[in-house]
Amino acid sequence: MKTLVTACAALPVCLLAASASGHNYVMPTLAPAGFVHDIVMRVPHGCKGSPVNKVRIKIPEGVYRVSVEHREDWDVEVKMRQVDPPIVVEAGREITETVDQISWSNPKYVLPPDRIGEFRFRAMLPNEPGRVLFFKTLNDCEEGTDYYVDVPEEPLDLRDPRFHEDFWDLMSATATPAPYMILVKPERPQYPWEWKTDADKPLPEND
């Protein structure tokens, strides 16, 4: 699994996969499980030629501590949901409420249909290596709405031998999949002071 992170860091393929797509997607497509991570949702085009004036995203189960980047040009709104039972994070702090949906809107600053728009937030990812997170998103346009909400019926897991087949089945069955993010096991903890390492441990391979 360590190798996976390394290999992917070395290969821009994963990013390529996302950037070539014609539907909303999130970056990174591979992220270390359990990290607090910056996430970018990219909206590559409008609805059949119509400009986008509202973008909505649903935060998947298990993703907490969401904070949304400030935007001068777009109004940001968050919708909360209860976390029951509450989950306990560091120092015994309890999370009882978390962000369920984020929406960015501003009819004045519409996103032209042929330009890519970026919408950023930060969140703590679940510590579940192998899980695939799906961020369902909607683009509300001047005319019509594009829905990128298609998810697999059964959760996908990188460790499942059928992972690639199942993923392909999902992607070939729909032209409007929800943006996905694959959680991988991190090489080391997120914060350097939590590393148990020693100076002589080799650096991650980067070829």
Binding site: L11, G22, H23
Partner: peptide
């Protein structure tokens, strides 16, 4: 293996609209 998977993703996820 990962490179192969990545390539597959590139071609497969490349949905045009």
């Amino acid at each position: 293996a990962f490179f192969t998977v990545g390539l597959l993703f590139t071609s497969r996820l490349a949905f045009a609209h």
